Simulated scan of single mutants.
Amino acid sequence: MDGWMNAVRRIESSNVDDRPEGEEISLVVVHSISLPPSQFGSDDITRLFTNTLDPDAHPYFSKVSTLRVSAHFLIRRDGELIQFVSCKRRAWHAGASSWKGRERCNDFSIGIEVEGCDELPFENVQYIRLGKLIESLRACYPIDAVVGHSDISPGRKTDPGPCFDWQHPALHGTSLVYPC
């Protein structure tokens, strides 16, 4: 098992490194992202994760184009699932973070970006895709918790935001669709 999911689009990010020796994946961190802010449907998120975002393409991009960030997965507004980093490796999604007294959440987590923002509701198909992905990850790794970025970086991050519905039925009791 190489940590890449079958049947998903794969775009490799170079913003990755090895997890600490012997570290088990026990946490899923749900994020939201939109580039430009509150706009959807472009390839700008992919460009950010692959270090090809043009700083002159939008005024906001000059602030973020030099960041070296990634996530394991991105769920687009239409439900498309893209994987950027093998689950076996450490993606750079959480930054300064802590969960239940453990620092450096990137060491033991999988990061899932959901295309969205704090001000607008997410799409039903995104919840369906997220629920199935989480269930698949739980079948492959000893996941203890699924949390928001705001839970591991309180005061620093707000995502996935107030419009994210943690009680959505698709996030509970889904079946496997992406074998490891």
Rank of each mutant, 00 (worst) to 15 (best):
S109G: 13
D165I: 05
P162W: 00
D43K: 08
L176P: 13
G148E: 05
I11S: 09
F84N: 04
A139D: 11
G173C: 12
V146W: 00
V29S: 14
I134K: 08
V177C: 15
L53G: 05
G3L: 13
D144E: 10
R129Y: 08
S13D: 12
G22I: 09
P169R: 12
F122G: 01
L171A: 07
S34F: 04
F61T: 01
D43R: 11
S136F: 08
P121S: 06
H58C: 01
E123W: 07
A91E: 01
L35Q: 05
A91K: 01
S32K: 09
Q39E: 12
G173H: 08
F84W: 07
V64L: 09
G22K: 09
I75H: 15
L35H: 06
A94L: 01
F49V: 01
E113Y: 06
P162I: 03
E103F: 12
H149N: 03
D54K: 05
S13A: 06
I152P: 04
V64H: 12
V85L: 00
T50R: 11
E119C: 02
C163F: 04
D151A: 11
D144I: 00
S14L: 15
R19S: 10
D44K: 04
P160R: 04
H168Q: 08
E24C: 01
E115P: 03
T50L: 01
E80N: 12
H149M: 05
R10N: 06
P37M: 10
V69W: 14
E113N: 08
S150P: 02
D54L: 08
L137W: 09
R76E: 15
R10E: 02
H149I: 03
S42A: 11
P179K: 14
D151S: 12
R10P: 01
H58Q: 03
S86P: 02
P55W: 09
W166I: 07
I134H: 10
L120P: 05
G79P: 07
E23W: 13
F108W: 14
G131T: 04
C87F: 00
R129M: 14
Q167L: 07
I128Y: 02
I128E: 04
K88T: 05
I45D: 07
D54C: 06
Q167V: 01
D107P: 13
V8K: 08
P154W: 06
M5E: 11
V177S: 13
V28I: 15
E123I: 02
N15K: 04
A94R: 00
G155T: 04
E113I: 02
G41S: 10
S42C: 09
H58R: 07
Q167E: 11
D56P: 04
R89P: 02
R138K: 15
P154S: 06
G22W: 06
R90V: 07
I82C: 09
Y178P: 14
S136W: 14
L130E: 05
F108A: 13
V28K: 06
D144L: 03
M1C: 14
R129V: 10
D2C: 06
D17L: 15
E23D: 10
S153Y: 06
S38T: 12
E21N: 09
S86R: 08
M1I: 11
Y178R: 13
E24M: 03
V64T: 12
A91M: 01
T46S: 09
P37L: 13
H172W: 15
N6E: 14
E21W: 13
V125C: 00
L81P: 09
